[in-house]
Amino acid sequence: MKMYEIVRTEELAPKIKLFEVFAPEIAKKAKPGQFIIVIIGEKGERVPLTIAGYDAGKGTITFVFNEVGKTTRQLGMMKPGECIWNITGPLGNPSEIKYFGKVLCVAGGVMIAPMLLQVKALREAGNTVVTVIGARIKELLFFKEEMKALSHRLYVATDDGSEGYRGLDFLKDVLASEKFDRCVAMGPVAMLQTVCELTRPYKIPTIVTLMPIMVDGMGMCGVCRVNVGGQMKFGCVDGPEFDGHIVDFEELIKRQRMFLPEERLSALLWELGGCSCGGK
């Protein structure tokens, strides 16, 4: 098999794809919580994606992505047998996995995939794991059965209430009635923010995975800087996981939108077929 060859693809939900890729050196070293940087072609950008699985025996890693912009949509069109131009990893610090007691895991959208890896690891470390998975609408939920099998209890929520609870408000009652020793959250910033506000009154250590804009992913540019407890941290080398109760989410949201007009332009031109060479 060739380096970075796509071994398997699966559409988990509309516009959410899972890729299994041959990358034996990364597979050997990857740990839950880490990410990779994918470049689809010589002219491509460096796109960070969280590792959602690894198999050192087979020499493969898996990741799941949302087809949101030009690069992820182009990636989504690639087929098994094709090779990704370059993958760097594993990057970032691994998650802290040990016995904490009872852990609340909350995952939203595409990040349900890497959360499965966390849940598995936390469970193996002897924790009682209560998991929440959420999405905008029920069609975007995936890994329900897998999550159920690994968690002691599973809650499902959607923004529109089309499946399970509507929103995360139900967690108020859950948190009022039982004690958790730790909370781990992965997903869109708005969701991370909500979870942190819910756990704050109970002083439950809440670890969030941040996804600031990145370029190199190895500490050389500083675009990924986030304000954590008044200190400047680099998302790629100091994170990607941080104490959610002291993260400046408002600033993070603004920084994530910095290049929105350019991203839209890039996607639009690509849709129009204006530059079919782009990214390859």
């Binding site: 002219k43 050389m220 400047m232 991203e263 890039s266 031109l269």
Partner: peptide, 29 residues
């Protein structure tokens, strides 16, 4: 941490390594 403030490294990496002077032919803005 306001938008529009780059480290020289970010700015130069975007321009030189990622060739964003040729955006959108190259993907990095």
């Amino acid at each position: 941490n306001l938008g529009g403030i780059y480290s020289a490294n970010e700015f130069l990496i975007r321009v030189n390594l990622m060739k964003s002077y040729a955006f959108p032919e190259y993907d990095t803005p």
